[in-house]
């Protein structure tokens, strides 16, 4: 794993020339950006811009056609995500992810959802369940630590009273927060959230913002966020990457992005005068004049 250029000190995820083709369709076209530690990086863009595809490349669902995804883990060193097996990305590189449509283990209890996310630590401690069966001390301690961590996150998301509920029976907003808590239980260094505010009411959205800011402050990890809700994007992100038709069209602080003409055009469509080629304009002009 030769990583030539020394990245900026705080760089957590370095995406270089990421390109993803599906047959003739170019879903992502040469996108590069950096997500820093202790920062919230938002990826925005109109529908079909390739945001979720970026996540799928990051979390091993897709193998990128071109490009390099380097994750600089503060303790374990750099990982090249595009070369890793799917389950090792969360396990070793510490990349956690949530989904647009909630994917909890809906048949398990709320607490179990958080414990199962700590599977790897528990498996190591239990010597692959042998010690767990014999209820040896080491495993008991590891399990207690796992429960403690789960309780901590249940407290954070305000679900401590519902620890024994079946996850699928929680209200929608709670399920979203539980999904974030579960992602946090794998002890990630990069948390990728795919539209966490989708379907939340304004009050729940405000809670979500607070939760994400808390996570950034207390855990010191990086958060990568796909979001359509601009109150979230503008409210909490430190840094916004804008995609349109698979290309990066802006990469700056939220205030700058908001006023960027390219971004406005991508969202609101082209200005009519500029959009049409001159010949057409001329014809049109004649028609208008004629009236």
């Amino acid at each position: 794993m030769a990583v030539e250029p020394v990245p900026p000190a705080e760089a957590l995820l370095v995406v270089e020339h990421l390109t993803m083709r599906f047959g003739g369709l170019i879903a992502i076209d040469d996108v590069s950006f950096i997500a820093n530690r202790r920062e919230i990086t938002a990826i925005i863009g109109p529908n079909g811009a390739g945001k979720t595809t970026v996540f799928n490349c990051l979390t091993g669902f897709y193998k990128p056609s071109v490009g390099r995804l380097t994750l600089h883990h503060p303790r374990r060193g750099p990982f090249l995500l595009e070369r890793m097996e799917g389950f090792r990305i969360p396990q070793q590189a510490g990349v956690a992810r949530t989904f647009q449509n909630i994917r909890l283990f809906s048949g398990m209890s709320v607490l179990e959802n958080l414990i199962v996310a700590q599977h790897n630590a528990l498996m190591r401690a239990s010597a692959f369940s042998l010690a767990g069966l014999l209820a040896l001390g080491r495993y008991r301690r590891a399990e207690r630590a796992a429960v403690e961590r789960a309780r901590h996150w249940l407290d954070q998301i305000g679900l401590i009273d519902r620890a024994d509920w079946i996850a699928g029976s929680l209200p929608y907003g709670d399920q979203r927060r539980l999904e974030i808590a579960r992602a946090m239980c794998i002890e990630p260094v990069l948390l990728c959230l795919d539209e966490p505010a989708a379907g939340l009411n304004p009050r729940e959205t405000a809670d979500l913002n607070r939760l994400l800011l808390d996570i950034r402050a207390s855990e010191g990890i990086g958060i990568l966020l796909i979001e359509h809700d601009m109150s979230v994007v503008m409210g909490i992100s430190d840094h916004v990457v804008v995609l349109d038709y698979g290309r990066k069209i802006a990469d700056a602080a939220p205030q700058e992005v908001r006023n960027d003409p390219h971004v406005i055009r991508a969202y609101l469509g082209e200005d009519e005068d500029e959009a049409l080629p001159p010949e057409v304009l001329q014809d049109l002009g004649d028609t208008v004049k004629g009236r």
Binding site: P90, R97, R103, V116, A117, C185
Partner: peptide
């Protein structure tokens, strides 16, 4: 049990 419910998700929380 996690794999039985959702294999992709299980892999995303680091289960082999």
């Amino acid at each position: 049990r996690a794999c039985a419910q959702d294999m992709k998700m299980a892999s995303l929380i680091g289960i082999d």
